[in-house]
Lab assay of single mutants.
Amino acid sequence: IRVFLPNKQRTVVNVRNGMSLHDCLMKALKVRGLQPECCAVFRLLHEHKGKKARLDWNTDAASLIGEELQV
């Protein structure tokens, strides 16, 4: 999953079965001084340019493999 972060940063996270978005993104956020409780995560909708859909931090990350997200 490719993730666009604040301050023009980005990362790619690996996903294993059973992991939530929170689990996958925790380290990437922590390294940058961010906390999931203070952030929202969105899936970028490529079929609708510029649109995005808000996701819950408990979403199964395996269902988002190959997607691009924005925090």
Rank of each mutant, 00 (worst) to 15 (best):
D56A: 08
V41L: 06
M19W: 08
A40Q: 15
R54T: 09
L5C: 02
N7P: 02
E67M: 07
R10L: 15
A62T: 13
F42K: 00
E68I: 10
D60T: 05
A62F: 15
V15E: 03
L69T: 01
S63D: 10
L5M: 06
F42M: 07
V31Y: 07
N14M: 11
E67Y: 05
V41R: 02
L21K: 00
L64Y: 07
D23G: 05
K52G: 12
D23Y: 04
A62N: 04
H46L: 07
H48M: 07
I65N: 14
G33S: 04
C39Y: 04
V3S: 00
A28C: 14
N17K: 15
T59V: 12
I1L: 08
K8Q: 11
D60Q: 06
C38P: 01
A28R: 00
N14T: 13
N17M: 11
F4C: 13
I65Q: 09
E37L: 02
R54G: 06
E37D: 03
G50F: 06
E37S: 12
P36S: 07
R2E: 10
R16F: 04
H22C: 07
K51R: 12
T11H: 11
N7Y: 07
E67H: 14
R10T: 14
P6M: 06
Q70V: 14
K51G: 14
A53F: 10
G50V: 09
G33Q: 01
K27M: 10
L21A: 00
K52T: 10
E67F: 03
E37C: 05
R16Q: 15
V15F: 07
L34F: 09
K52E: 15
L29C: 01
L64N: 02
L29A: 00
T11N: 03
K8C: 07
L25R: 01
G50L: 09
V3M: 04
K52D: 10
S63M: 05
K49A: 13
K49Y: 08
F42C: 01
Q70W: 10
D60G: 02
V41Y: 00
M26I: 13
L44F: 10
S63Q: 09
S20K: 09
G66L: 00
E68L: 06
E68A: 08
Q9L: 00
A40V: 13
V3I: 15
K49F: 08
S63L: 11
R16M: 08
C39Q: 01
V12R: 05
D60I: 09
V71G: 04
S20Y: 07
K51A: 12
V31P: 05
C39V: 05
C39R: 05
K27Q: 13
N58S: 11
V13S: 01
G50T: 07
I1N: 05
V41P: 02
L34R: 00
F42V: 01
L29N: 03
V13I: 10
N14R: 11
V3D: 03
C38N: 15
C39E: 00
Q35S: 15
E37G: 09
G33W: 02
A40F: 04
L55N: 02
H48V: 12
R43E: 00
L34M: 12
M19P: 00
P36A: 10
W57A: 05
Q35M: 13
K8I: 02
N17V: 11
E68P: 02
L34W: 13
T59I: 10
W57P: 00
S20V: 04
Q35N: 11
T59E: 07
T59P: 00
D56R: 05
H22Y: 13
H48G: 15
R10W: 15
G66A: 02
Q70F: 14
K27I: 12
L5D: 09
K49C: 12
P36L: 06
K30R: 12
H22M: 13
C39M: 02
H48E: 14
Q70C: 14
H48K: 15
L69R: 04
H22Q: 10
G50R: 09
A40D: 15
G50E: 11
G18Y: 03
A62C: 13
E37R: 08
A61R: 04
R2T: 15
H46A: 10
T59N: 02
K30C: 12
D56Q: 07
V13Q: 01
D60F: 06
A62W: 09
S20I: 02
M19L: 09
A53E: 15
L21C: 04
L34V: 04
K30P: 02
W57T: 02
N58W: 04
L29I: 04
D23C: 04
I1T: 09
R16C: 10
G50S: 10
K8V: 00
L69S: 00
V31Q: 10
D60L: 02
V41M: 05
V71T: 04
L45Y: 11
E68Q: 09
L29E: 00
V15Q: 00
V15I: 08
D23P: 00
V12D: 06
